[in-house]
Design a binder for these strands. Structure first.
Lengths: 145, 145
DNA sequence: TATTGTTATACTCTATAACTATA
DNA sequence: TATAGTTATAGAGTATAACAATA
């Protein structure tokens, strides 16, 4: 089936293209924040006040645990997170936000969520529709693992 | 303004997350095809039968011309494209599909456009809505440069 | 023996700067 | 002098494999 006949295929192809068109702006923003997307996502993924295990974070980030080590190293150097021992299992390390991290996170998220022109210029109805559809999809993703 | 109050911001954050969730599958697909996203996009960007200039392709791919050199090198080695001299300007090289390239492109596009589960599992109404909204956005992108 | 996190390492994607040929 | 494409190179993002500590 050709992409033009299947709305799922066509939507996916368009999405890839739209996303790709933002590569440079995304890179510039990451430089500006001194934070790459993975690190931003990591900050967002820390939900428990006492911190989350590295392995849990790797899963939330859809990446390998070995990569998380490096990400946490850099965030720890900047004083945004800290590694804490888990009371339950001495192998596990919990990654928790510091006070500075909590403050910084809000600012990062504000900058990061600034939508690119291809979204910004949509009608508010389209933005809402997009938002609803994506929210459902993200929920399904979380439910199905 | 927080992301939860602005559908544009929220849609963008969800989109980043959904896209990110497909990183591994996308990588696997690229390995399977022996083609990265940039190369696939390049193949798609060749529209004129006599080929398109490298600089034009770089623009279509949102990347630097120096990177296009390498992409074309690899595609040429595989016999999918060829560099042709431009009749107008001896500095310019036109990148054209070979016969094999034309055949291969259709197959690549078929595989590439296979939507990920987060799209596949949507209702057909949502897929159509997504498709319409993205098509408008892509059109605007093309119009505004 | 299995699992958590780390280290060492290597590979891919991509840009920047310097260069060649042509305009 | 300016432009199209190439080369050399460097940096970022990420995975794999081997390892140490703990379970």
């Amino acid at each position: 089936m050709a992409a033009e006949e299947d709305p799922g295929r066509e939507a996916w192809m368009l999405l890839i293209q739209l996303f790709r068109s933002q590569r440079r702006e995304m890179a510039a923003m990451q430089t500006e924040l001194g934070l790459n997307l993975a690190q931003a996502h990591l900050l967002k993924a820390i939900e428990a006040p006492q911190g989350n295990p590295m392995s849990e974070i790797a899963e939330a980030l859809f990446c390998d645990a070995s990569y998380v080590t490096g990400l946490v190293d850099k965030l720890e150097e900047r004083g945004l997170v800290q590694r804490l021992p888990s009371p339950d299992d001495r192998r596990v390390k919990l990654v928790a936000l510091t006070e500075a991290g909590r403050t910084a996170r809000a600012n990062f998220m504000c900058r990061l969520s600034q939508p690119p022109p291809f979204i910004e210029s949509m009608s508010v109805e389209d933005k809402r529709a997009l938002c609803d559809i994506f929210a459902k999809a993200a929920q399904a993703l979380q439910d199905n693992g």
